[in-house]
């Protein structure tokens, strides 16, 4: 934080207002974060490339294993996709095309990697955003209610419920949902992002997607709801003992206002941190849920790409996922400042 304070203290007083802003703390901070992000992504891409190349067998081996091929056909394919080149040449080529924003081609999908990612990113984004919003809201409310009733039966039952959510593996919840709501009750569609071949439009399509995503989103929510609930309860209990809350009460504010305006704002800080972690773990990490519910998301795509040795596709997914994580972390840091003015750029 110290460099920030000095930076803020010595803007060039003669500079034009626009330039003064450009030299100010926020742009500098953004610039530094950007360069850090660039380094992180470079490491991620090179690391994934090396890892997938270290695994024995390449894409052509996989193709040949699934479809009879002669040695000449295999050699021709390797030459076509540059797999006959030394690894470092392949890496340099990949970095070069990435620099020109060309993600390459996925032969196993017979499509450009960018097309595949553009089709799948929205699925994952919807999954992640809705489960973060739902679990954070529900978790926070439960945490606050538990904290206000600390020690009494309401607190106890909420804590027990949280423990249950916390301890049940996500895939068990998912399979349970399928058995109850789809197989026995016949209410919910099991697989996919929307009804195949229905060609719905407008609100009907929105409703269709909602019904398809309900079970996977709720299954993803259970664990994180418990986390938010537990963190929320602890943070709330701590904040409620602070002087400023006592001051607020002394001013004669209603209890509701004290809790939800004064106390909760401070208690939100650890919850926002958690949200950042949740987003990072779900982007590309929801493989299990995507698999069970047949959702064509980023995690599933990366998972399959590893086994198919589809380097271009894997690296494309890794690149976009890590970019999303970097952006989300930045947004979270901005949120800190909005929530607590004492937090400064550093």
């Amino acid at each position: 934080m110290s460099d920030l304070k000095t930076a803020a203290a010595t803007p060039d007083r003669n500079a034009a207002p626009g330039l003064r802003f450009l030299l100010g703390p926020l742009p500098r901070y953004v610039l530094r974060r950007l360069s850090q992000a660039f380094l992180v992504m470079l490491l991620v891409v090179v690391g994934s490339f090396v890892l997938v190349k270290m695994a024995p067998g390449d894409m052509v081996d996989v193709l040949a294993g699934n479809a009879d091929m002669t040695a000449e056909q295999m050699a021709a394919l390797r030459a076509r996709y540059g797999l006959d080149q030394p690894t470092w040449v392949q890496l340099l080529r990949y970095m070069y095309s990435l620099a020109t924003l060309d993600f390459g081609y996925s032969p196993l999908n017979a499509a450009p990697v960018l097309d595949i990612i553009l089709a799948r990113w929205p699925v994952t984004a919807l999954l992640v955003v809705s489960s973060v919003l739902i679990s954070m809201t529900v978790g926070t409310i439960m945490g606050v209610v538990a904290a206000r009733n600390a020690g009494n039966p309401v607190d106890l039952s909420i804590s027990l419920l949280m423990l249950f959510f916390y301890a049940t593996p996500t895939f068990i919840v998912a399979i349970g949902f399928i058995l109850i709501f789809s197989v026995f009750l016949g209410m919910m569609p099991i697989a996919g992002f929307s009804t195949v071949g229905a060609d719905y439009t407008g609100l009907r399509y929105v409703w269709d997607v909602i019904t398809h995503l309900t079970m996977p989103v709720l299954a993803l929510c259970t664990f994180f709801t418990a986390i938010y609930g537990r963190i929320g309860r602890a943070a709330m209990l701590e904040v409620l003992t602070l002087d400023y809350v006592r001051t607020a009460r002394a001013k004669g504010l209603s209890e509701r206002r004290v809790i939800y305006v004064h106390a909760l704002r401070n208690a939100m800080l650890p919850l926002v941190t958690m949200a950042g972690l949740q987003v990072s773990s779900l982007v590309g990490g929801a493989v299990l849920i995507e698999t069970i519910f047949g959702l064509p998301g980023m995690g599933r795509t990366a998972f399959d790409a590893v086994f198919e040795r589809d380097t271009n596709l894997l690296l494309g997914v890794v690149f976009v996922s890590s970019l999303s994580v970097v952006v989300v972390n930045f947004v979270i840091d901005m949120l800190y400042m909005a929530l607590d003015p004492r937090v400064e750029l550093a």
């Binding site: 695994a55 024995p56 081996d61 294993g65």
Partner: peptide
């Protein structure tokens, strides 16, 4: 091992 390794 996974399929690619097995084939190779």
């Amino acid at each position: 091992q996974d399929f690619a390794v097995f084939i190779k």
